[in-house]
């Protein structure tokens, strides 16, 4: 599948993901893209290798005398069962299914035939699925800061290029773009944006998804 992917996660975003400093919604896009792209799985492993070297060489701190014995005494304790991670379903890779809690998306109309399903809104960033009819544009939208858009089905084009399944578009607030879905099948994307903070002061959080995107 990754053979045709030509738009990848930039290294600094991968480093921030590996280091845990990337906001939640963007981390969801990175984890989903890595699930689809062997090149970026390798880039992530390289970033984690640097992280490991930092861990290995940073100043250490003495641990208290009893800690080792405590840990050793717990090795044979029963392990609390962990739920298995959600499996890929149709065009939705595992991390998206995890965010959907294993259920199909519940679409809400956005106008112009476009639909959305908000997935997460934690930590100042929002992730959503977008469903765009063939040949139609995504309604005009402003975003503060970073926007990552990953194609899961179909494709779209805008001023910066053409994006197909697995491709990620990285847009910053200086990009005023009008993505238009390819003719043929509907385009389904996973998109992450910084939360529209200016709405926070006077709109309940639950209403935000109703306003623009």
């Amino acid at each position: 599948m990754s053979a045709n992917i030509s738009h990848h996660i930039p290294p600094e975003i991968m480093a921030a993901y590996a280091a845990g400093s990337l906001p939640h919604a963007f981390s969801l896009v990175v984890a989903t893209h890595v699930s689809m792209c062997e090149d970026c799985r390798a880039e992530l492993a390289a970033q984690e290798t640097v992280g490991g070297v930092v861990l290995e060489t940073l100043d250490s701190a003495e641990v208290s005398a009893g800690l080792k014995a405590d840990v050793l005494s717990m090795l044979d304790d029963p392990v609390p069962p962990e739920p298995a991670p959600a499996k890929r379903s149709g065009v939705y890779p595992g991390p998206v299914m995890e965010a959907l809690k294993g259920k199909p998306p519940r679409w809400k109309a956005l106008g112009g035939g476009v639909k959305q399903c908000v997935l997460t809104g934690e930590g100042g960033s929002v992730s959503r699925l977008l469903w765009i009819p063939p040949g139609k544009p995504v309604p005009d939208h402003g975003h503060n800061g970073l926007e990552l858009t990953l194609v899961l089905q179909g494709g779209f084009s805008d001023e910066t290029g053409h994006f197909e399944v697995g491709d990620v578009e990285v847009a910053t607030d200086d990009l005023d773009h009008v993505p238009t879905a390819d003719p043929g099948a509907p385009c389904i994307c996973l998109a992450a944006t910084d939360a529209p903070l200016k709405f926070n002061s006077f709109l309940p959080r639950l209403l935000q998804p109703l306003f623009g995107i």
């Binding site: 590996a18 280091a19 845990g20 492993a45 984690e48 290798t49 992280g51 490991g52 070297v53 930092v54 861990l55 290995e56």
Partner: peptide
Amino acid sequence: TRAQVSSWIYQIARNRQI
């Protein structure tokens, strides 16, 4: 073959801290 011990533990530590 895919991760050094240090990078594997680094990932576990980052997840736990988040």
